[in-house]
Structure formats: C-alpha cells, structure tokens
C-alpha cells in the first residue's frame, strides 16, 4: 500500500518532467537535426545529405558571424563576472542582514520589466536625439547630436545589463555559504588581501563562478532582442542569421542546421570552460 502510494507520487511527479523533456526538448531537436540534413534538390523534392552544413563552411560570413557571436558572448560573460563578483561579494559578505535582502531585491527589480521594454529604455537613452546626447549638447561638451546606438560597445553594454543578474544570483548563494572565519583565517595566517582573494575566496566560489558563467554565456549567445535592437543591422548576431533563414528566406533546412550548429558550438565552449577550470557540470550546478 505504502509502496503503491510512493510509486504513484513518483509517476505523478515524473510525468510532467518526462513530457517536458520529450515534447519540448528531444523531439524538436531531433526534428531539427532531421530537417537540417535535408537538401532541396528541386521544388518539393528533398534528399538527405550534409549540404546545409557544407554551405555553412563554404560561406565565411556564416561562420564569421558564429565566431563573432561566440567571442562577444565570452566578452560579455567576463564583463558580467568582473562587475558581478564585487556586487555579489558585497551582498553576501559585507552588507548587513537587512540591507542584504533589500539589495537583492533591487537586483531583481529590472526583471519585472520585459526584455523589450528594457532595450527600448536603452534606446531612449542612447539614440541621436536621446537623453545622453541631449545632455552633452546642452552642457556644451559637443556641438552636434551623437549616435550611441548601433555599435558593438552598446550591444555589449546592453547584454551585460540584461544578463548580469544571472551571474550575481549563483555567486551570492555560494559566497553566502562561505564561513567568514575562513576569510579571517586567510588573513590570520599571513595572507594579504589579494592572496586571500586569489587563494581562498575565488577557489571557494568557483562552482558559483562557473555556473554563473555557463548561464550567462548561453543566454547571451542565444539572445536575439538586445543585439538586434541595440546593434541594428551591424550587430551580425548568429541568432539573427537563424531568424533570417527561417522567416525571411523561408529556408528551414539551413535554419535548422544553423540552430543545431549554435547548440553544438555553445556546448563545446561550455565543455572547454569546464575542462579548463577543472569543474564538473554536476558539481557546479549542485553547489550553487
């Protein structure tokens, strides 16, 4: 009886999860792989082959865009880590108990506004007739309007702003679990500030750092809205290519191949990152 109840509850809990994995992850991806392997030889005539992937390799603009997306995503990840770590450290270790909650809440506030609106917020600030340009003109520092939008710096700023929270949250939770005495012991045994940071705090926070980086990198590489709105046509983000293939050119086969390539590429980067830092996926996700 007891056993049956246990089994039933397990099945009830497991079913939605299995359905989600199967219907929303495995089947679509298998469909994508199958689709990407089809080549159009004549109207309504398809053959299986690697043509779509060969096209990708033969056309430098495609793989350049992918590499560019990857490297810019890495840059965004590094910037988010550099900015997020001190913030997380302050929240977890320096702020008092009451301010900690308030600060955490402040970090969450931007999430109440949709991605789209947040991007438009940046546009209002940065466009030629926007707030910053106007203020600069008014103060006499410049004499004609400046366009801050549609360049890589803006795209990176916008992306860092969008994803930094996903860096801060895992960092705060790992740093929170660190006993203050450990930092004090680091000083007590003769370590200077940089030594304690390098030898004790960062190694301890490594699982949080890695999991934050994975999430941020994946989100950035797969983001669409922010690069398009802030970077315009210059952004050449890889998701834009995929969108083009699917929607504009109606070339689903090639779009599916691109989508699959993006997945393989980002997975490879994450794998490489884990190898370099000596962490395992289970370790980082479980600890933070």
């Amino acid at each position: 009886m007891q056993k049956d109840v246990k089994r039933l509850s397990l099945i009830l809990l497991f079913t939605p999860f299995a359905l989600w994995i199967l219907l929303l992850i495995i089947i679509p991806h298998m469909g994508m792989v199958v689709l990407s392997l089809r080549e159009k030889v004549a109207p309504r005539v398809y053959e299986y082959g690697l043509g779509n992937y060969i096209d990708f390799i033969n056309e430098p603009i495609y793989w350049n865009t992918l590499l560019r997306t990857g490297s810019m995503s890495l840059l965004v990840t590094v910037l988010a880590l550099l900015i997020g770590f001190p913030i997380a450290y302050y929240i977890a270790k320096i702020a008092g108990n009451r301010t900690r909650g308030a600060l955490f809440l402040l970090c969450l506030v931007p999430l109440w506004v949709s991605d789209l609106i947040r991007a438009f917020g940046w546009i209002l600030l940065l466009r030629e007739t926007g707030v910053i340009s106007s203020v600069l003109q008014w103060s006499g520092l410049v004499h004609e309007p400046i366009e801050f939008l549609y360049n890589d710096v803006t795209v990176i700023i916008g992306l860092v702003y969008t994803v930094i929270l996903f860096m801060i949250v895992p960092l705060v939770s790992t740093l929170d679990g660190m006993d203050n005495a450990m930092i004090e012991a680091g000083y007590n045994l003769g370590g200077s500030g940089p030594t304690v940071l390098r030898r004790i705090i960062i190694p301890y926070a490594m699982p949080g750092i890695v999991s934050g980086c994975i999430v941020v990198f994946m989100l950035t590489a797969g983001s669409y809205l922010t690069p398009i709105l802030l970077g315009g046509k210059n952004s050449s983000w890889f998701t834009e290519q995929i969108y083009d293939q699917f929607i504009t050119r109606f070339n689903w086969e090639s779009g599916a191949a691109f989508g699959f390539l993006l997945l393989v590429f980002t997975s490879f980067v994450v794998w490489l990152g884990l190898k370099i830092t000596g962490q395992t996926l289970a370790n980082t996700v479980a600890r933070s």
Partner: peptide, 13 residues
C-alpha cells in the same frame, strides 16, 4: 598571532 577558529576554518578546497 595565529588563531584556531571555533569551527576551525580549514580550507575545504
């Protein structure tokens, strides 16, 4: 002056 902490604070990593 060195200190042995209440929970020892050995470095787990």
């Amino acid at each position: 002056v060195k200190m042995v902490f209440q929970h020892l604070a050995l470095f787990p990593m």
